[in-house]
Design a protein around this nucleic acid. Structure first.
Lengths: 194, 194, 194, 194
DNA sequence: AATGAATGAGAGTTCATTCAT
DNA sequence: GATGAATGAACTCTCATTCAT
């Protein structure tokens, strides 16, 4: 197992444990889940706070990486929004436990952790906002793109939370369709002619 | 101070402390904030978990109480949705610290606490769903009302979180208008003719 | 057992444990020795460092209390020096383990602890220095009183350390006589005519 | 770098680190300061305790080496005492951090370490005691030479500690003169005619 | 009913020591 | 010989909970 593998193993275990136990996750459990000793966790992360922040930041970075190519080529608002919803659903299927933590402000840990996580999650929305601005061109649209991205993200997240809790699983396809079925027609209202 | 007053004082202090300190809230702080001794908290709530659950359940109950009369008289989906959004914003202005905790699954405490809080927050949506069903009558609408309520709630919560973090305060009026400006036109698509 | 008793019990146990184990003393051992739970120690002292500093400061304060009346009445340098040596020996019989720590700069704990302990131990010498200055009156003596107090203290401490380690006990009477037998004759040299 | 060089490098670094950080010195820091890996320290010293003891013993051995020739030739008690005080001051200038540790019983580490260090420091006084005995010849002096060596060492050490803490540096010349100015006249009392 | 001193299990963190490379 | 990643026992400190008053 290489060094990177071990770091990843700890992060993966941390995700599972944080997701399962929320604020009650202990370093002991994370270490055990990763198959390493408690002290080893501290070789890779200088504190529990640091570990948690790294986990979120790394997951968000991976999420954002996927957006770049697509958004650069996106030609319409419908494209962008569709992509946003689908990507978010996909992300959630993989990282459900982190969802609430990721795109909400409730995080265990210090005030510094809350700030850094909030900043990271805001950054994750930027590429979408920028893509929309590019597509719109100079405009006087009724709703600023930032607000729209926030609202649509909220819809998706909430629906996912609801269905996973209710049903125990997520039909990402159908959920994305539900969100888009509601949202896409409206876009013509908000940004007419695009 | 009557018995009920003391219980309320503890709950109010608990809300302030939980909101301010998230997971780090201690019984000591709550007691001090309520002006009672630590032991007294345990006369009214059998554990910290119990106190937290009671807090959420009571706040949700108060929220739901407000809906009954209005929803019974509501005549259109637009009415209902408008009311949902405005009420939610108003609630948030009063209880922002609890928002994320209330309508998300991330809670400090035991698995039992998570379940009870989730159940309570789901119940809070029911009256809206029922009102919509009543207004719709027997129907084959494209989107089931439950899904719609969930999505709209998500939009509102997310926007609120975003703006409070970003700006440090919430313009409830404007935010409600932003959400409704986007949502109401959509409704005509989803439930045409209503 | 009153509150003050418990605080004293902890301090007494701390002295024994610190003296016996030097830097390796643990809160657990101190608590056990005092017959209280670990957490109780933290009711009375906010950290291990604080506990250690309080211990030293309190012992020095008790030591200084004994000096006041006597020094105010002391009429000659010989009186003062004799008192210094005897008091120091007596103190050491009661608090041997702390000796090295008390009047030397080697202390376990933070830099802040070192400073505060150093300051306290310096203050313990002041009354002697002042008394000597008073007795001397305005003068151009060969040796400043501060230096002399420091040196004589060093002699006494060192001798005590040596004999306790070597013999396992201290004959305070004899040791004081040894120090004074060496020192007193010289005083006539250093401060002639007094 | 030869094997001996590396051992020396570790000892030198250990001295710096022990002196600077008192009880908080870690093997990691010592290794880093010596430019070797942590594991390497264990090739030369079987434990941290062992390293610490070796450090003290080696410094004392070096100190004693300097005394042999001189003491063998010393012809009077004044010579010997003067040499004792000056050598001790000189030693302290080089090894101040270790002083308190060296000639006091406060040492980090096990009881065994305390014993061995105490023994070593006592041995360092022996050559002086023997030299004095030799110079005195068979005698019934008022004070046994052992006691006198101990007391004079204590004066010197204490004065040094005091001045370094107070002033931040040591004027060895002046301090030696202060001690000798006080002590030499006393000797004529204690050992008259020598 | 009300208190708050006392408890002790359990948390995060450190660091001497080991050992496969 | 030399390394440094890995270990886990042991530490300090916190805090939910209890109970004598």
């Amino acid at each position: 197992m290489t060094v990177l593998d071990k770091r990843s193993a700890i992060l993966d275990s941390a995700e599972v444990v944080f997701s399962t136990q929320a604020g009650a996750a202990t370093i002991d459990e994370i270490a055990k889940a990763a198959g390493v000793a408690k002290g080893t966790v501290y070789l890779y992360f200088k504190s529990k706070d640091e570990l948690f922040i790294s986990l979120i930041e790394e997951r968000i970075a991976a999420y954002m990486k996927k957006t770049q190519d697509y958004l650069a080529a996106a030609a319409s608002i419908e494209d962008i929004v569709t992509f946003l919803v689908q990507l978010r659903m996909e992300f959630v299927v993989q990282h459900f436990g982190l969802l609430n933590v990721l795109f909400q402000a409730v995080v265990p840990g210090s005030a510094e952790a809350q700030d850094r996580i909030w900043t990271a999650s805001q950054n994750a929305q930027k590429p979408f906002v920028e893509a929309i601005n590019r597509v719109l061109g100079p405009n006087d649209a009724a709703m600023d793109p930032q607000t729209m991205v926030v609202m649509i993200s909220g819809m998706a997240d909430h629906l996912v939370s609801h269905r996973i809790w209710e049903d125990g699983f997520l039909d990402a396809q159908r959920s994305a369709a539900d969100v888009l079925g509601f949202v896409l027609p409206c876009l013509r209202n908000v940004y007419p002619g695009r």
